[in-house]
Structures are given as C-alpha cells and as structure tokens.
C-alpha cells in the first residue's frame, strides 16, 4: 500500500498516518522552496494542501522548481503545481489561490489551515506571514536563502519565538535568488527540510526547530544551530496593533526627472523618492489622464519589457509622444 514505508516507522504508524490525513498546510509561494515542500507533503499523504502564488512559470525557474516542465512556461504556477501534485497523489485535496498574499487576505486564508509554509523570497511577505500567524495562532516554517547559505526555523509554535524576535529590524537589501544566483539543490534541501518540520509537528515526533535557527552552508558542509530568545514585546505589539506592513524602499538616482512606475504594488523594491507616478499596469487604462503629456516621462517596470509595450501602445493609440522606456527596468534607475 501507498504509505507502507513510512507507517513502518515508530514515529508514524497507523495513528500517525491518520494525523497526516487530517492535517492541512498552506504553502505561500510555489517556487524554489514551495515545490519540494509540496511534493514531499503530497507524497506523505497530507490531507489538504493550499497553494498561493500569483506568478507564472518562466524558463529561469526550471533549474530549481522541479514541479514545472518546459510545457508549463507562461502558465500559472499554482495551477500547474496542483495538476502535477494530483498526479503524484490524487487522495490529497489541493486548493489553489492565484493571487499575492496581502494584508487583506492573509488572516482569512491562514484560518483555513493548521500550518503555514513560507516559500517566499522577500522580507515584506515574511513579516506579513509572521504577523498573520500571530493573529491567527498558527505555526509557520521559515526558510531563506542567500547564495549557498540557508536559514531555517519554526516560528509561533507553542508560544515559541516569532520572526520579529529573530530580526526585529529588517534591511533594505532585499536580494533575491534571481539577483544573486543559486544552485537548484539549495532551495531543494531547505524546502524539503521545511516539509520535515511540518511532518514533525503533525506527528508530534522529534524536536521541532522552534526557538532554534538552523544555518546551512551547502559549500562548506558546516551547519550551525543557534538559540533564539523570545521578545515578548515584539509579539504583543502585533497582538495589539494587528499586522504591521513592512515596505522595502529605495531611492531614485536622478530626482530631477519624472518617472512612471507601472509595476503592481507588490513588486519590489518600491521607490520612495524623487518624482514617481505609481500607476500599476492593471489600472493604467482607467488612469491615463493622470499621465502628463507636456513633459518627458520615463516609464519603468521590473525588467523593461512591460514598460516597452506600454510606451509603444500609448504612443500609437493615445498620442503620448513624451514617453521614454527605461530599458533594463527599475534596477537601472535606483541607488545601490
């Protein structure tokens, strides 16, 4: 039978398998971390799995996000992941949310699950997960990667410390795997370890990494386990004030020019200086009158591709001859 090899373990057994079947887990971000976490939990027979991701599969995802194939390029990550995971195990119930996690949906979504897995790649969402987990009293499994290093911990588990206890202050240097580079195995290992922490919590087996920060270095092979102290004031602050949004911001290099940022509001880094009109592409059609026609406007997005389409379209159809595309995207116009 399907689960025979794990039921043989003393830590699982028939009662443990029943616990897994009755458990539900939400994975925030179906990328480098989320793919291996999802595969392992579905294989193990978790009862219900939620997948939230607004992103689409791109070619540079394929070396580490092993749920996806070349045929999936351009498709919704959450939807593709669901169909592939159902092929692995049709007994698992899988919910899909093709939207970003936000201050508006986080608490309602988290209420529906027992445990949350952080598969995200930015500080804003990690603090959002942290705060929403405190408010909904759910444990969450954290992982982060910088090049060949990883951090792993379980937060908000049985009155344990939170992410704000570890890092009460964040940094503006939000560096993604896309920017620094990463071996596919690194998120593969971290995401699999996240799934292991979930299994331990559900089965009541072993030592859950609560109050501990595990540091992994893929190259040196040297791991460390540090003790995290609880900062009660950081947790009470969230209980009293609700979610405190964290925004990673940056400054524009040339503050004399007028810019138009057409990125959606969840895209980072946010620009907080200079003259920048922020009109997300999804709202652009209804807000065209906000764009001046008399002076030069530099239009940017993340990479320069969407902004080029916008500039071409607005020139051709609405006589915006004052628009210039920022080739190379936001990184080319900010400091640092």
């Amino acid at each position: 039978m399907r689960y025979d090899r794990q039921i043989k373990l003393d830590e699982v057994g028939v009662p443990g398998q029943e616990k897994l079947r009755n458990a539900s887990v939400l994975i925030v971000g179906v990328g480098g971390l989320g793919c291996p976490a999802a595969q392992n939990l579905v294989g193990a027979g978790i009862g219900r799995l939620g997948l939230i991701d607004h992103d689409r599969v791109s070619l540079s995802n394929l070396h580490r996000q092993l749920l996806f194939t070349e045929e999936d390029l351009g498709k919704s990550k959450a939807l593709v992941a669901k169909s592939r995971l159902q092929q692995i195990n049709s007994e698992v119930e899988i919910d899909v949310f093709e939207e970003p996690l936000s201050i508006d949906n986080a608490e309602n979504l988290f209420q529906l699950y027992d445990i949350i897995i952080d598969g995200t790649d930015n500080f804003e969402t990690k603090y959002l997960i942290n705060d929403a987990c405190i408010l909904t009293e759910k444990p969450w499994v954290y992982a982060s990667i910088y090049k060949n290093e990883g951090q792993l911990s379980v937060f908000n588990y049985q009155e344990g410390p939170s992410y704000r206890c570890l890092f009460p202050k964040t940094t503006r240097q939000n560096i993604s795997c896309e920017a620094t580079g990463v071996l596919g195995v690194t998120p593969g290992i971290l995401g699999t370890m996240q799934a292991a922490e979930v299994l331990k919590m559900i089965l009541g087996a072993g030592n859950v990494l609560s109050g501990k920060l595990k540091l992994i270095n893929i190259l040196s092979g040297q791991d460390q386990l540090l003790n995290i102290s609880k900062r009660v004031e950081e947790i009470e602050k969230i209980k009293n004030e609700g979610i405190i949004p964290v925004r990673i911001e940056c400054k524009i290099s040339d503050e004399s020019k007028l810019y138009l940022d057409i990125r959606e509001i969840f895209e980072q880094p946010r620009v907080n200086s200079g003259k920048v009109l922020q009109i997300p592409l999804s709202e652009l059609e209804d807000r065209l009158e906000e764009i001046p026609k008399q002076e030069e406007v530099l239009v940017f997005c993340q990479s320069g591709k969407r902004s080029k389409k916008v500039v071409d379209l607005l020139k051709a159809q609405f006589e915006f001859n004052n628009l210039i595309n920022v080739e190379g995207g936001v990184e080319t116009i900010i400091d640092g």
Binding site: L33, Y146, L166, F167, S176, L190, L213, Q224
Partner: peptide
C-alpha cells in the same frame, strides 16, 4: 544584523576569552 554569542542570539552580553560570536544578516531569497 543580529549577533549570536556562543550560539545564543543575544547582543547584550560582555565577552569572555574564547567566546564565539556569529554575525547574522537577514536575507530573504527563496
């Protein structure tokens, strides 16, 4: 940046001979 002295995340201690101090920056890749 957070410090761990002898594997305990705590910035507020006085150091002793032979202590090990780890410098941990937050990072967020995934």
């Amino acid at each position: 940046v957070q410090l761990a002295v002898n594997q305990n995340l705590d910035n507020k201690v006085e150091l002793n001979e032979g202590d090990e101090v780890a410098f941990l920056p937050p990072f967020a890749g995934g």
